[in-house]
């Protein structure tokens, strides 16, 4: 093979995306270390219990403390949002240009990375719930009730699937926010204000918010939830790509 042949060989989009994706996965291991950190933090916070109710008289006071790994899942949601925003920043985008790359391959590899992160995050967040149960068993042992202690595999798998879907959606939203901030720094102020405003409006029963809430959180069928989340996620990523193309070409 001559030197001319090499220089004229243009790698396919798939090859470039694959190379970028693998490079990013290796280079961003620290992000998964951060996931581990927030999940352990969530686990430690969950040790005190989520809620408690009790009754008593002169002789005996009995309370039932409810434990749940909800907090670990919420923390994982925050983690993936931050990660999604972070990988749109210039520091992280610069990795792409180590390769012969274009914006599309860069986006696709980022999406691939976020999907991988969502899958890893979803599996670990749900399994952290099992780890939490083991830790509490040893701490609280004598007065633990067996109800919901051992979760059936299909229940765990359902939990993993739903968590992954939420992580996919949140990562897409984070990526979109990140792209907006790269477009204009004004969004650093606008987005949090919009978020707080939405929370405030939520209290006032803003119909749009209620509809969005029912569309995703109110969905009880896993298949329908998957369809809704995957379509919404794809649309958000498509919007992000279109917006990002308006950014100055490096």
């Amino acid at each position: 093979m001559s030197l001319t042949d090499i220089s004229l060989t243009e790698p396919s989009l798939f090859d470039t995306v694959k190379k970028q994706f693998l490079y990013k996965l290796k280079g961003r291991l620290g992000l998964f270390l951060a996931m581990m950190g927030v999940q352990i933090m969530g686990l430690l916070f969950s040790l005190s219990g989520a809620s408690s109710h009790g009754m008593g008289d002169n002789f005996l006071y009995v309370s039932v403390n409810e434990f749940s790994s909800d907090l670990i899942i919420w923390f994982t949601f925050f983690w993936i949002f931050v990660v999604a925003v972070l990988i749109t920043t210039k520091d992280y985008q610069n990795i792409d240009f180590t390769f012969v790359a274009n914006r599309l391959s860069s986006h696709l590899s980022n999406v691939g990375f976020l999907i991988t992160a969502a899958v890893i995050g979803g599996v670990t967040a749900m399994l952290s719930g099992t780890l939490l149960r083991i830790v509490i068993y040893f701490i609280r042992g004598r007065y633990m009730l067996s109800e919901n202690f051992i979760t059936d595999p299909e229940v765990i798998l359902t939990g993993i699937a739903v968590t992954i879907l939420y992580l996919l959606l949140i990562s897409a939203l984070g990526y979109f926010c990140g792209v907006l901030v790269q477009l204009s720094k004004v969004f650093i102020v606008i987005l949090p204000a919009l978020y707080i405003g939405t929370v405030d409006f939520l209290a006032r029963e803003l119909p749009v918010i209620v509809k969005v809430y029912n569309f995703i959180i109110g969905e009880n069928s896993l298949a329908l939830l998957a369809v809704k989340v995957l379509i919404t996620t794809a649309l958000i990523y498509a919007c992000s790509c279109v917006l990002a193309n308006r950014l100055e070409v490096r």
Partner: peptide
């Protein structure tokens, strides 16, 4: 009077991602 006894029982609640699909598994 008997010695006052305080007992804290612990129970696990299914995660919200599970209850969304499989329904709430509230305590008995």
């Amino acid at each position: 009077a008997p010695e006052f006894l305080q007992i804290e029982l612990g129970v696990f609640r299914n995660e919200f991602v599970i209850s969304q699909i499989l329904g709430d598994t509230e305590l008995e």
